[in-house]
């Protein structure tokens, strides 16, 4: 069976700007994160898979079909754009029913689908109000709902958390996890936030400057050498020295002592070092890798 999405030697050039250069991607079932800073080529890749753009070279295939050559290939894809894309004057219910029909669903079923999907994204009573009156969070849910209304095999979500406050962001990510796990719809989620991708996805593809710089299961990104952050009230320099005598490399980052953690036995040594330095411990916690760490690690970055 062909993969859900597959890019081979995919290149996209806008005038003199190279947005994507000769990338190979394969996306199978599950939730895949497309991670990269702004301008990395994430949106370009998504638009190529949707057939909104034609590749300069190479190919982008959806379930074995090229969407820029046959529009039918888009029938089982959903797309949630990053930018505004909702009409203000009509109700969410009418809008979703219309979008379902555009994907080929007859009017009678389209109404039912619209109501179902809006309920799943948490819009029930509000669906009979004009979308223009919605809050940012509600609009974001309508954007998500329209990508699901025709029950696609896969949805492509372009920065779905952008513009949301922390609470709204967490709710959106929870919804995305449910869509992937409970609804059984595969997801390609683009984001520039490691946290979003890490907490939601099974696999990650990291893009930067139009290249794939890393890809693999999420665990690969979180397991590798974890950083330990030690927050003490006093005697920071003494603590670093005490750690050094126990063979642990530590460095000061502002008021924090940071240790590259290698194994679990270190915890005992750190405890002893804290006692020896007579430093009052406030907090000790692992720090997950930030996106910047990945780019720092990569040969291109």
């Amino acid at each position: 069976m062909s993969p859900l999405l597959e890019a081979k030697g995919l290149t996209k050039r806008y005038g003199h700007t190279l947005a994507l250069e000769n990338i190979d991607i394969r996306v199978d079932e599950g939730i895949t994160g497309l991670l990269g800073p702004n301008g990395a080529g994430k949106s370009t890749a998504i638009k190529l898979f949707l057939g909104l753009l034609r590749p300069t070279a190479g190919s982008a295939e959806v379930m074995g079909q090229r969407p820029y050559e046959s529009v039918e290939a888009r029938g089982r894809l959903g797309y949630m754009p990053e930018h505004d894309c909702l009409p203000g004057a009509i109700t969410a219910s009418d809008f979703l029913a219309h979008m379902a029909q555009l994907s080929g669903i007859p009017p009678r079923h389209a109404r039912t689908r619209a109501a179902d999907v809006l309920r799943h994204v948490g819009l029930a009573e509000e669906r009979y109000r004009a979308i223009g009156q919605y809050s940012t969070g509600m609009k974001q849910r309508v954007k998500l709902a329209q990508s699901l209304v025709h029950d696609p095999a896969m949805v492509l979500l372009d920065e779905p958390t952008s513009g949301l406050d922390p609470g709204g962001r967490e709710e959106m990510l929870e919804l995305i996890r449910r869509i992937g796990r409970e609804f059984g719809i595969s997801i390609l989620l683009s984001s520039h936030l490691m946290g979003d991708v890490e907490s939601t996805c099974d696999r990650i593809i990291v893009l930067d400057g139009g290249h794939v710089i890393e890809e693999g299961p999420v665990s690969q990104f979180t397991q590798e050498t974890e950083t330990l952050v030690i927050d003490v009230d006093n005697n920071r320099d003494e603590l670093v020295a005490a750690l050094a005598t126990r063979g642990i490399q530590a460095k000061l980052e502002g008021l924090l002592v940071v240790v590259e953690q290698e194994n679990e036995e270190q915890f005992d040594a750190i405890r002893d070092a804290l006692v020896e330095a007579n430093a009052r411990l406030r907090r000790m916690a692992p720090r997950r890798h930030q996106l910047t760490d990945i780019f720092r690690r990569s040969p291109d970055g």
């Binding site: 029938g75 669903i105 007859p106 079923h109 025709h150 409970e182 059984g184």
Partner: peptide, 22 residues
């Protein structure tokens, strides 16, 4: 819970009709 849609999918002709009606 979520139910998949297993009703008819009428493709492009339905989309055209919907565009006209809308």
């Amino acid at each position: 819970g979520y139910r998949h849609y297993d009703g008819p999918r009428e493709g492009r002709m339905r989309a055209r009709k919907a565009l006209w009606a809308n």
